[in-house]
Amino acid sequence: MGALLQILSYGVFSGALYGLVALGLSLVFGVMNYLNVAHGALIMLASYTVLWVCYYLHFDPFLSLILVIPTFFVIGWILFMGLFQRLLALPETEKLKNSLLISFGILLICSNAATMLWTADERAVATSYTGKVIDLLGVRLPYIGLATVFLAIIVVFAVHLFLTRTYFGKAIRAVSQDYEAASWMGINTSRACLVSFAIGVALAGFPGVVIALQTFNPMVSFDLTNKALIVLILAGVGSLRGVLFGGLLLGVVEAASVFLVGVAYREVVGLVLFVLVLMFRPQGIGGRKA
């Protein structure tokens, strides 16, 4: 029983991380139908930025977010102005295709650039609380895992509040529901897209810091993007809270599957679950009808 709870707790931690990884991707996809496969690469770059901030400024990794998030907001802004803005006028399927291709190019460039800047060596940020745990009735809960869960809940909640309670957030939601209608209503649609893209990229900072505390190298970008895509679809497009639930579900199922099929097929079980969900509920768990 203790072992079961212990193993599931690790599932919850990795699930929360999956949710964070997919969050920015989901926001961008929901608002403007861009499939930004470079999101994994941006998270990877965020991890390296955290590493740098910790190394040169001796910040705590979580504190480094006050620098990392604005930096990535600006990066998102630049990427949008330089590359993605011109896709806005395209029809839906063309948008999807072109954003996929451009962001794939960015993925290649980022991974290669990171290899040159930091070498492909494995990296991680070591802290005084790495490996420290809270013992809760025999179940050992690592500080970093708990912090990941809190971070995921707070960030998802904050983004949700922003979208539902602020004027600007409402404008973004209007754009995501109907681009043309929103522009007739006098909403500056291209500005709404710009800001939500920049926020989407800035959100890469949060999983970036968690991954920096675990282990990373330039090539994790591909794995992260794959994971994010799976969670995005599992959650249902445009559902930000669904992202958290989708991530947690995937993480817990993967962890629990150890009892059924052993460690080697862990990831397969998660993916099979994903395909089954799609078969019987094609709009995802929390998504609106496509």
Binding site: L101, G105, I106, L108, S111, N112, M116
Partner: peptide, 12 residues
Amino acid sequence: QVNVLIFGIVFI
């Protein structure tokens, strides 16, 4: 070593 990077730029 930069070959993939240059390819990415040409691709975009």
